[in-house]
Design a protein around this nucleic acid. Sequence first.
DNA 1: TTCATTATGACGGTTTTT
DNA 2: AAAAACCGTCATAATGAA
Length: 638
Amino acid sequence: MNDYVAEIRPCKGLRALFTKFGDHVYFIAFYVPDVYVQDANVPGGDISDVDWTSSDEESETHLEAVTSPQPTRTETIVGNEEASSSNATRSKLIVQFVGMGFSEKLVLKAIDENGEGDPDSILNLILTFSTLEESPPQQLSANSDPCSSDYIEIFPYDLSDMDSWSEDEAEDCLKDNGAYKSEKHKMLLSLAESGSLSEKETKLLALANMGYALEDAEIALERSGPETSVDGLIEFICVAQMAREQDCYLPEDDLKAKHILNGSSKSKKRKLFDMKKKVMEESIRLPNPMIGYGVPSMQPPERVHRSLPEESRGPPYFYYENVALTPKGVWDTISRFLYDIEPEFVDSKFFSACARKRGYIHNLPIENRFPLIPLPPLTIQQAFPLSKRWWPTWDPRDKLNCIQTVIASAKLTERIRTVLERHEGDDDPPEAVQRYVMEQCRKWNLVWVGRNKAAPLEPDEVEMLLGFPKNHTRGGGISRTDRYKSLGNSFQVDTVAYHLSVLKDMYPHGINMLSLFSGIGGAEVALHRLGIKLNNVVSIEKSKANRDIVRSWWEQTNQTGSLIDFDDVQLFDAARAEQIISSIGGFDLVVGGSPCNNLAGSNRVSRDGLEGKESSLFYDYFRILDLIKCIMGSNRAV
DNA sequence: TTCATTATGACGGTTTTT
DNA sequence: AAAAACCGTCATAATGAA
């Protein structure tokens, strides 16, 4: 209960670990995950990535010092670290490949030629060399660990500045702050009574009455000019707050606001207190096992009923989906927008032979759910019986990992085969080989399809694992690459169907559905397989290839209802919604899984969170859902 | 040849789980 | 403390269509 551990990232490369006991949060350690080293004694290297107390000029300097360290005081440390890290990487690589049975000479040669960057390329080179020289593999000697002690990941730091900080101090700070606020606020109020408020003071009071910090309001007013409306000021403050809280991407204009508020009189300790509070409050915990309100094979012990906030209740029912493993705070935001309903986190490995950790927010009943029949294969062995013949005894997997949008290259599978063929005669390949192959198999979701042959799944196998009919995405002009992409972005049909199954008894005459970000129609397929009639489906999907897939599925399954499609959620406005609702008589269900690419762990380039370019379309899901609720007159909050 | 489409492979970090 | 997992993006090479 009490061992809450949190990690924060004060600046690039530097991390801090906190733990919570009772009501107190304790600092544990700073550590440096890779080659980044920040001198803890440099002011800019403090826990706060921005100095909140300094003037604009100063904070600008600090920001620069932190984000792009200058080779001044940190030079020697950085230099040492890079050298030892490089040595460590090199020895690790050598140990790895010698352990796989290659001669040290070949390994060194390959590393010299290739550099230390990509283990896969190195392996490729080694294989090439060894084919040329046909030298017998050298077995791993017991004590060939030249310099493992050079490989240091954690650095003890003297953190006198941090250590001395305690929560009591932070609370004092907060009290001071509150006193300042209320005193000034009171003064304004009394001025208001006597009717002697200037235009500027009126605006400040208005903001204070809305709960904004007066200091922030003052700065906003000062910086955006006296002509700025109260709404404009609020926007200014919000932008600055957002920037301050999550350091998210901001357009240039907004960065100005961020920069300016950074220079406010808010103290550093207050900032720490805020960070601590954020870490404690904004943390939705994932269930373990990830079974939400239950899966067919495993009902949760207690929780059989839930009560929903009044304003969230259907009709219309709604169902929202996204990846479970987002950056921190994302699900808190999503939940806050979707009427404070708690997300239901479910791993589709309970419905399929592959994992798929997803979060769902919906206002559906959770009693009397039932699964699709027939139950799909739940293990790799059941799903791919032919693979049993080739499955190595040392590959312990019985579930696949999450289906993604891209697959392994042919080169990789070739490397795996080549490495394994070198140990044909042995009972088992060396442990290092096993480790390498297993790592790749898990990373790329490979299955065994022949002697020493691991291969990525075929598109139709992915269709089966995700619960779609075979060839659902085949033909119609879609390329193989795009098939993988569309499938990788889709629902797991059995999982979604389990959640939607409660609608069957409620709507014996069928439903009208609004489907946002429809993709290849996972929700449509789920409802159809449940035997829930689809009267009218309005589907909004950007990709033409995907719309074509859903359209052709619709025609092939002899639907009697009508399918209407649009391509852009952002263009779906009130006029359009009203027109459709008046023609079909309202929606019973609004389904959507908004883009996850800026949230997903595989994204190295633009994992920007909910404010990312595509993932921010979540707000359109909310907008349209709320719009539908308004039009249908069930939004009691307004 | 030229242009358009498709396939390939290199690219780490955050968070959870064990 | 270490391992494992992750609905991805980009530049460029290869292939295909005219």
